[in-house]
Design a binder for these strands. Structure first.
Lengths: 238, 238
DNA sequence: CGGCCGGTTGATTCTTCAATCAGCCGGTGT
DNA sequence: ACACCGGCTGATTGAAGAATCAACCGGCCG
C-alpha cells in the first residue's frame, strides 16, 4: 500500500486518499446502485477503514453529491464550449454527442452513475440535481434558439424540447451500452452510434423524402436534388 | 369507512382492497420515490392497516414489481398492436409516440413511477426489469428492420439503435412533463410535443435537406422558399 | 347459540446500516 | 526520549423501518 511519497507531493496530499474513496464510490455505485450499497462496501473497495469515509465526507449523501459535482461540471463545461463555439448547428450537435460519448469512453462507470443515479433520482435530498440536468438542457437549447433565428431549423420546433430530445437520444444511446445492449468495447460500434444519433437528430431516419407518403400526408415535397452522402463524416470536434 | 357492498360485488372481491393498496402505492411511489417511502405511508394513503399490505403482497419489492407488471404489460400490448398493425413507418412511429403520451395522459403518476423507479433502477432485485425495457426496444426494432428492407429507411441506420433513440426521445419528452419542465396540464403542449418528437425522429430538425454535405461548411442560408406547413397533422392513431 | 373462518388490525420483533467516537499508530519537532 | 498531532481504525450505538404474529372482528353455517 502506501507508496512512500518522498517529498515531491507536499502540495496536495489532502487528496490522495480522498480520491481513492471517491473512485471506489463511483465503482460501487455503478455496480450496485446508491441505495443498494453500504458505506462498508465503499470502504472495502477503497481498501480503507470504514470510519475514514466519514473523515473525508460528511455523510453518504455528500459522497454521491461529490461524485455528481465532479463528473457533471466537467461535462457541462465541455458542452458549453461546444455551444458557445464557432460553427453551424450540425457541427455543434455532433460536438455535443461527441462530448457525451467521449466522457463515456474515458470513464463508463462514472457516466453510468450520472445517468442511473442522478439524472432520474426523484427529488433527491436538498440540492436539486434535477436542476442541474435541466440547466444543461437549457444551456444547449440556446443553440437551437439561435439556429432557429438563423433559419437553420424547421419553424415548428420548440427549442427547449429539441434540446431535450437530443439529450434523450444521447442518453438512451449511452444506456444501450451501459446496460450491455450494445458492446461498449467495440470502438467501431461507439463511432457508428455517435454518427447515427447526430444524423437521426438532424435528418431523421427516413430514406430521403419518402415518396409514398402515407395515409394523410407527411408533406413529401423535396425538391432538393441529391440528399447525398449522409455518410456523415461530420466535422470532428474533439 | 367501509362502504357496505350490498351483494352486487360477489364476483371479484378478492381485488378491491388489493387494488386500493396498489393505487396508493403508485401515488406514494410517484410522490416520494420507492426508497423514500415506508410501507406505513402506503398503508396510510390507502386508509388501511399496516399489516394488510403484507397480506396482499409478499414484501415491499413485490409491490413495486406488481406496479411495474400492471402498467408495463398494458403499454407493451399497445405498442405491439401498433408495430404489428398496418401502415407505413411514419404512421407507426407516430402511433408509438401516441401510445406513450396517452398512457401519460391517463395516469401520469404511474408513468412517472415506471420511468423514474423502474426503467433506470440498477439491477433491481432478482427479476430483471431492465430486460423488460430492452424487450420493448427489441419489439419496436422489428418495425425498423422491416422498414429498412422496404427501403423506407436510410441505409446507414442500425434498427436496434433507431428503436432505442425513439424511446429515448419519447422518454425525455415525457420526463420534461414529469419533472415539471413543461406544463402537463396544457393539452396543447402535449399535442405539440408528440408531433415534434415524431417529426424530429422521422425528418430531423434541420430546415430542409441540407445538401451542402458537411466537412467544411454546413450551408447556413436556406433559400428554399417556404418550408411551410409541416404543421404535421400526422394521422391520428388512437 | 356457538364455533369456524377469512379478512383485518397494529404493537412487537428483528435486521440493517448510517453515523459516532474513543483510541491507535507513525511521523515530527524539541 | 518524549510528547504531540493528524491521519486513520473499526467496534459500538441508535434509529429507521421491514416483516411478523397473536388477537380481533363480523358474517355464516350447522
Amino acid at each position: 500500500m502506501g507508496q512512500s511519497k518522498s517529498a515531491a507531493d507536499n502540495g496536495n496530499r489532502e487528496s490522495e486518499r480522498r480520491r481513492t474513496i471517491l473512485r471506489a464510490a463511483i465503482d460501487v455505485f455503478a455496480r450496485k446502485g446508491y441505495h443498494g450499497c453500504r458505506i462498508a462496501d465503499v470502504a472495502k473497495e477503497a481498501g480503507v477503514a470504514y470510519g475514514l469515509v466519514y473523515h473525508y465526507f460528511k455523510n453518504k449523501d455528500e459522497l454521491l453529491e461529490t461524485v455528481f459535482d465532479t463528473g457533471w461540471s466537467g461535462f457541462v463545461t465541455r458542452v458549453r464550449a461546444v455551444v458557445e463555439g464557432e460553427g453551424a448547428l450540425s457541427a455543434k450537435v455532433y460536438g455535443v454527442v461527441d462530448v457525451a460519448f467521449e466522457a463515456y469512453r474515458v470513464d463508463p462507470r462514472a457516466v453510468k452513475v450520472l445517468i442511473l443515479e442522478i439524472a432520474r433520482s426523484p427529488a433527491g435530498s436538498r440540492i436539486n440535481r434535477q436542476t442541474a440536468f435541466v440547466d444543461a438542457i437549457r444551456l444547449s437549447s440556446e443553440l437551437f434558439i439561435r439556429a432557429k433565428e438563423a433559419g437553420e431549423l424547421r419553424a415548428d420546433t420548440d427549442p427547449l424540447l429539441s434540446s431535450a430530445l437530443l439529450f434523450g437520444a444521447i442518453e438512451m444511446g449511452l444506456t444501450a451500452f451501459v446496460t450491455g445492449l450494445a458492446d461498449s468495447r467495440d470502438a467501431q460500434a461507439l463511432e457508428r452510434a455517435k454518427a447515427q444519433i447526430a444524423d437521426t437528430f438532424l435528418h431523421g431516419v427516413l430514406a430521403d423524402a419518402s415518396p409514398g407518403a402515407e395515409t394523410a400526408a407527411w408533406k413529401p415535397e423535396k425538391p432538393s436534388s441529391e440528399k447525398s452522402s449522409t455518410k456523415s463524416k461530420a466535422p470532428k470536434r474533439t
